[in-house]
């Protein structure tokens, strides 16, 4: 079983649209939406829910007000600024789950309870199974939830005999990105020829190198700035990475979203679909190597 993770560093480069298109072109595949705090893949893949459950990503501390003497030790020990005082009363919000206040409260007035991080889902899509999730807004542990979604996807791949897991990763280079990336067979970076696109691509390429994951790059909207497209090619070849895919700016990315379908299904005869098909062919050859 191979696992390909699609990342971008910068958001809004077309990563999710491309992942959905790949899923359609790949045929039998399991997809994992690891962008758990802003998941969008389900808007394109028409999932029918099979199974769902809550995910507890760790523990959180809660002060029992009736036993609290308001000594304030927890507030001074918490390195994350999560203990707040208001009118002489202490309360914890956005707990990082380290357990320090629980251990050292002189009154033992702080409970240590499982934290509800989010909801996980396994669904059936026309492309195959999908593992996805919904992070409780503002919750900690998005990385743990992303790791859990990947694990679900691999289980589904084993169960259904799929030999490919496609992971739609979150933007950035933080916890959930690291959780989506480590141990994957290959990473495809979707960038765009803008100052932010280039800057963020370099950071994500540093990250994939840090974790030793084989990486390739696709430039979306390459024609909005040919000079920067060339700059990206130079940067990529300077790092010794192979082939770079390019896609022109296309309003069909947004129109397919409006139709709620992957691009190849919404516009099977469009030129952009043909371009995506070629990139998928290259990618498939690369990851199956």
């Amino acid at each position: 079983m191979k696992e390909l993770v699609v990342l971008s560093g910068k958001g809004g480069t077309g990563k999710t649209s491309l992942t959905a298109a790949f899923a359609t072109l790949a045929g039998r595949v399991v997809v994992a939406d690891c962008d758990v705090d802003a998941a969008n893949l389900h808007l394109l893949l028409a999932p029918i829910l099979r199974d769902t459950g809550t995910f507890q990503g760790g523990k959180e501390a809660i002060i029992r007000t009736r036993d609290c003497t308001a000594c304030g030790l927890c507030a001074s020990l918490c390195r994350f600024g999560s203990v707040r005082e208001s009118e002489g009363k202490f309360a914890i919000s956005h707990c990082e789950g380290c357990g320090v206040c629980v251990e050292f409260c002189p009154q033992h007035a702080i409970d240590w309870v499982p934290a509800m991080t989010g909801t996980w889902m396994v669904s059936d899509c026309p492309t195959g199974r999908m593992a996805h999730a919904h992070l409780r807004p503002g919750a900690e542990n998005s990385g743990k939830l992303a790791a859990f979604v990947r694990k679900l996807a691999k289980e589904q791949a084993t169960e259904t005999g799929s030999d490919l897991v496609l992971v739609d990763g979150p933007p950035g280079i933080g916890c959930p990105v690291i959780a989506s990336l480590t141990g994957a067979d290959a990473a495809l970076i979707v960038t765009e020829p803008t100052p932010s696109g280039i800057h963020d691509m370099e950071r994500i390429l540093d990250l994939t190198r840090h974790f030793g994951v084989d990486t390739r790059v696709v430039i979306n909207k390459f024609d909005i700035n040919l000079e920067k497209t060339q700059r990206i090619r130079d940067l990529v070849s300077g790092r010794g990475l192979g082939w770079v895919g390019t896609l022109p700016y296309s309003p069909l990315f947004t129109q397919a979203q409006v139709e709620g379908k992957p691009i190849p299904l919404a516009f099977p005869d469009a030129e952009i679909t043909e371009r995506i098909r070629l990139i998928w062919k290259e990618t498939k050859t690369w990851i199956e190597r």
């Binding site: 705090d37 802003a38 956005h94 503002g138 998005s142 933007p171």
Partner: peptide
């Protein structure tokens, strides 16, 4: 930061 997770919070 984008998203709705702990960095955003």
């Amino acid at each position: 930061p984008p998203g709705t997770a702990c960095s955003f919070a």
